[in-house]
Simulated scan of single mutants.
Amino acid sequence: MAEAAIMASDSLWRKLRSEAQCAAAADPVFGKAVAGAILAHDDFAAALADLIGQRLGSGSTERARFTSFARDAFRSQPDLIETAGRDLQAIALRDPAIAELLPPLLHYKGYVALQAFRVSHWLWHRGHIDTALLFQNEASNVLQISIHPAASIGSSVYLDHATGIVIGANVVIGDEVTILQNVSIGRTSELPARSPRIGRGVFIGSGATILGDISIGDFAKIGADTVVTSDIPAGCTAVGNPVRLTNCPEPASAA
């Protein structure tokens, strides 16, 4: 993804507010919800923290608690907001069904679940284990997406459709990865139990399963319902069960 296509969080916030103002003017009914979600806040961090609280909390007390934890994380680690902005813009760049930023922010549960994970990851690495697991549990219950706080996920990541995604502890996912629904990424029962490492720009199709101490190379593609338990070279497409490779780049020596 070209760096020039990525706006800083301040510019992104101005664009979101502009989109929200247009939406509110065009639809008085929808406009009330937009005003509460976007226009009532001073910056992107406040709006995103409130959105996480609203989606994860089942009552006013729980919503306030989740919002407070998210605000603390964003205040303590501002690059979480820059990453959240990159994730949001990745959706607009890769999803042909949308052209604006406001709809995925307000309505794409994969985006909210990913930002809730980033807060839980921040909590986990500061020793707040129970609270981090609470974020994971509520995201799993409410959004049907379970990402362990001990996973590591890069920026500009897009969870498309997202229902049924499970990402286990210590999984490593690089930048610019796209993951569709019903994907499982985690460890096997074999010891030592180690987790997959997903490279930059990887596309993972719906229903795929990626297990064990393996690496998926940069810009590889994993087909729908594929089961992967061994390394996939960079640039290759993996399909089927047992897996087979197609469309691999020619070796440099052959070129």
Score class of each variant (00 low, 15 high):
M1N: 11
E3H: 11
R14H: 11
E19S: 04
Q21D: 06
A24S: 09
A25I: 00
V29Q: 13
K32W: 12
A37I: 05
I38G: 02
L39C: 04
H41D: 05
D42A: 15
D43A: 08
A47G: 11
L48T: 06
D50L: 06
D50Y: 13
T61W: 10
T61R: 12
R63L: 08
T67K: 12
S68A: 14
D72P: 07
I81R: 00
A84Y: 07
D87C: 08
L88R: 03
L93T: 11
D95L: 06
A99Y: 08
P103D: 06
L105F: 14
H107V: 01
K109Q: 05
K109E: 03
G110W: 00
V112C: 06
A113C: 09
Q115V: 03
R118H: 05
V119G: 02
W124M: 15
R126D: 10
I129E: 15
F135L: 01
E138D: 15
A139F: 03
A139V: 04
S140V: 03
V142P: 08
Q144E: 09
I145K: 04
S146A: 13
H148L: 11
P149S: 07
A150P: 10
S152Q: 15
S152D: 14
L159G: 13
G164S: 09
I165Y: 09
E176S: 14
V177A: 02
V183P: 08
I185P: 04
R187P: 03
R194F: 10
R194E: 12
P196D: 04
R197I: 09
R197K: 14
G201F: 10
F203N: 07
I210C: 02
D213R: 01
D213S: 04
I214Q: 00
S215I: 07
I216Q: 01
A224G: 06
D225S: 12
D225K: 09
V228S: 01
D231G: 00
D231V: 04
P233H: 00
A238Q: 07
V239S: 09
G240D: 10
G240W: 14
E250I: 11
A254P: 11
